[in-house]
Amino acid sequence: MPTLRTVYAWELRKLMAQKRTYLGLGIAVLVPLIFAIALLLQSGQPEDVAFGRYVRQSGLAIPPVLLIFGSIWLFPLIAALVAGDIVAAEDHNGTLKTILTRSTDRSRIFVAKALAASTYAFVALAAMGIVALIAGVAVSGLHPLVTLSGTTVSSGRGLLLIVASLLVYMMPLLGIVAIALLLSVVTHNSAAAVVGALMISLILQLVTILPGLGALQPYLLTTQFNAWQGFLRTPVDYSPVVRAAWVCTLYAVPALGVAFTSFVRRDVTGG
């Protein structure tokens, strides 16, 4: 049987041959560019968002602003765009029967798809982070960063903390990937899966502002999109990061489990 690596490599190649892949990546790259250009063209800065005040003092403040902005719907959308499509597109093209009658088990194909969708989310996030850093430094320079605690960290340490933040941001993003993948398997419909995953992400955020449900907030998947902020405090607060790790696991693992079982057992009647 071909190795998981071979199957995974082909899943990536298929992604690279599709337009929708570049839509998400394009947005991830364009948003920081547009933000930087806007800073150049206009005076003032976003005051009502953390780090917004410092975007002209240090380029390092720009990625955190975009992470906060992107957590509402942008990154969930980018992640769902591919994860929600990766199985449903095979239904749409009728190609499941084509790949499932070769010498590769369904389980291996599922794992390769899950890995490819996660890789995509990672690449999009990294692309946003890198472009935001470069554009930020180009516009505002590489200067020490003011943290959420009001202290200042050196630009070197600031850079390190930004990278760590991006990695922690990946955890809830993988939760979204898992949910979109599940919807992709069970709905057989890419639009339904993408929109469904995005709706779930928006509704979870809505829950926190409903009266009486505030206590749920720490355990919602979308709340974990703020966990990285623990890194930008002095001293570094690891507790939100630790909580994000297990909360995201609690969302991702059952979703992946159901998606896996359903994919491995289902009747392939289309195509």
Binding site: M1, P2, T6, V7, A9, W10, R13, K14, T98, I99, R102, S103, T104
Partner: peptide
């Protein structure tokens, strides 16, 4: 792609 899934 299919040949990759086949091996052999």
């Amino acid at each position: 792609l299919l040949a990759a899934l086949d091996g052999h």
